[in-house]
Amino acid sequence: MRPHPVPSATRPGRRHRAALLSVAGLVIGLAGAARADVPVSIGVFLADTAVTDTALAAAAASGGAEPSTLAHGGPVVTGTDAPGGIHDPYEGWNRGVYGFNKGLDRALLRPAAMGYRRALPREAREGVHNVLANLGSPVIFLNDVLQVQPQPAGETAVRFAVNTTVGVLGVFDVASQMGVYRHRADFGQTLGRYGVATGPYVYLPVFGPSSVRDTVGLVVNMAMDPLNYARFDGDVAAKLSVIGANALDTRVGLDRDLKDLDRSATDPYAATRSVWIQNRRAFIRGDRPEDVQDLPDFTPDAPASPAPSPPAQPPRPRTGG
């Protein structure tokens, strides 16, 4: 598996770099696949296929369709399965991968992240976090543009400009202090906003919870990252540092939510799946309100009650399999 798209290697040295970056990509993915900014949480574990990255790689995304029908109001959101319901035809396999990732986390990622947390004071870690977030702005900007979201695109551009300069290469999140907050955007979200269906749930090795659509989005998202294309002295070391720092930063940020989820769920795999798909749908919905009619009934004798469907078996037909 080579999830980290690196331009094709032409020289042995390049091939070596590509392999290195692939491995590193896996590690960051583990962290990036699950990301939380949730202070009030009951194990809210939000997965974000947007591995933090940069991009002005307009080239990578050139030719992105911008149908004129999207000119106002933005793309249409489709798919109204029961909240938390997602087709999981590969559950057996997915659970296996889930166990594998848990082992990897226990053996490698969490110990490293806890070491990082002990080694650096909070302020320094926040600076690192801000730099990484800033490096991710170009990819967010690009997806804002693809989604025909001028205001968010403007905000992302301003944030990048302000934080890179006034914020000293992104160390200080000055833009947030000005009230221009960070938002996320990724290519899986872009696909979703153009009406691409979620598809079956997929639990990816290292990357964690995803869907068929969002796996495609993940790959494209990484291809948009200009860091992947930059060539300079010591570029491999620099890229690996960014990837490693991303993994550590994300894992540290997630620690409490992951612990909460493991403690409060009787079946953490199922809980993660439910949380991921609900959060993902909300992310794709954006500011559009949820259709409250899709919510389950709590009163058994309520009229027209669509009985709460079991998880993983929404009524949506699937193709193949």
């Binding site: 900014d37 949730v38 009030v40 949480s41 009951i42 194990g43 809210v44 939000l46 029961a82 909240p83 938390g84 319901g85 769920a265 009787t266 079946d267 199922a270 809980a271 799946r273 439910s274 949380v275 609900q278 959060n279 993902r280 749908r281 909300a282 992310f283 919905r285 949820e290 919510l295 389950p296 709590f298 709460p308 079991p310 998880p311 993983a312």
Partner: peptide
């Protein structure tokens, strides 16, 4: 919170 309904998640977990 963050698009995630607590009781809905609990049901799917249980």
């Amino acid at each position: 919170v963050e698009g995630v309904w607590l009781a809905v998640t609990e049901q799917q977990d249980f």
